[in-house]
Simulated scan of single mutants.
Amino acid sequence: MVAPEPVLPQRSSAEVNELIRTLMQHTSGILTSQKRHEYELLVVEWAQAVRRETPRQGNS
């Protein structure tokens, strides 16, 4: 069974991407388990933002 995606704040994909970049820069790409968890949540949020911002095709 797949767990549902968590509901996260609705920031834009660009905002979340910037947070991911900042996190990676501040950690030099080496993540502690706590920072890895933060990174994983940001990636999920970024993917949700991309889906939200991408126009749906069909029904035309």
Rank of each mutant, 00 (worst) to 15 (best):
L31M: 05
N17C: 06
A3M: 09
E18N: 10
M1S: 15
Q10R: 15
L42S: 01
T32E: 10
A47Q: 14
N59Q: 10
P9T: 04
L19V: 01
A14Q: 12
E40H: 05
Q25A: 13
T32R: 13
A3L: 14
T27Y: 01
L41R: 11
S28E: 15
R11A: 14
P55F: 01
R21I: 15
H26G: 10
H26K: 14
V44F: 00
T27W: 02
A14E: 13
L42M: 02
P4G: 04
V7H: 07
W46I: 00
R11T: 12
P4Q: 06
V7K: 11
L8H: 00
Q10K: 15
T54D: 04
S33L: 13
Q34F: 08
A3T: 09
L41T: 03
R11E: 15
Q34E: 13
L19C: 03
P55Q: 02
L42W: 00
V50A: 03
H26D: 12
R56D: 02
S13Y: 04
A49T: 05
L42K: 02
L41A: 03
E5G: 06
I20S: 06
Q48D: 08
E53W: 08
N17G: 15
P6R: 12
I20Q: 06
R52L: 06
H37N: 08
R36H: 12
S60W: 09
V16H: 01
T27Q: 04
A47H: 08
L23A: 09
P55M: 02
Q57R: 08
L42V: 00
H37A: 12
T32Q: 09
Q34K: 12
Q25F: 10
S33V: 11
S33T: 12
A3Q: 12
G29R: 10
G29Y: 13
E38R: 00
S13L: 03
N17E: 14
S60P: 10
E5L: 14
P4K: 07
H37D: 10
V7F: 04
E38F: 01
E53Q: 13
V50L: 12
P6S: 08
E40M: 08
L19K: 07
V7Y: 05
R11K: 15
R36D: 13
L8N: 00
G58M: 03
V7I: 10
Y39R: 11
E40K: 07
A47D: 12
L23W: 11
V44K: 06
A3V: 08
V50H: 00
P6T: 06
E53N: 08
Y39S: 08
E53R: 10
V50S: 04
Q57C: 01
A3D: 09
Y39H: 15
N17Q: 14
Q34D: 11
L41S: 05
S33D: 14
S12A: 11
E53I: 07
R52V: 03
A14R: 12
Q48F: 04
L23D: 10
L8R: 01
T32I: 09
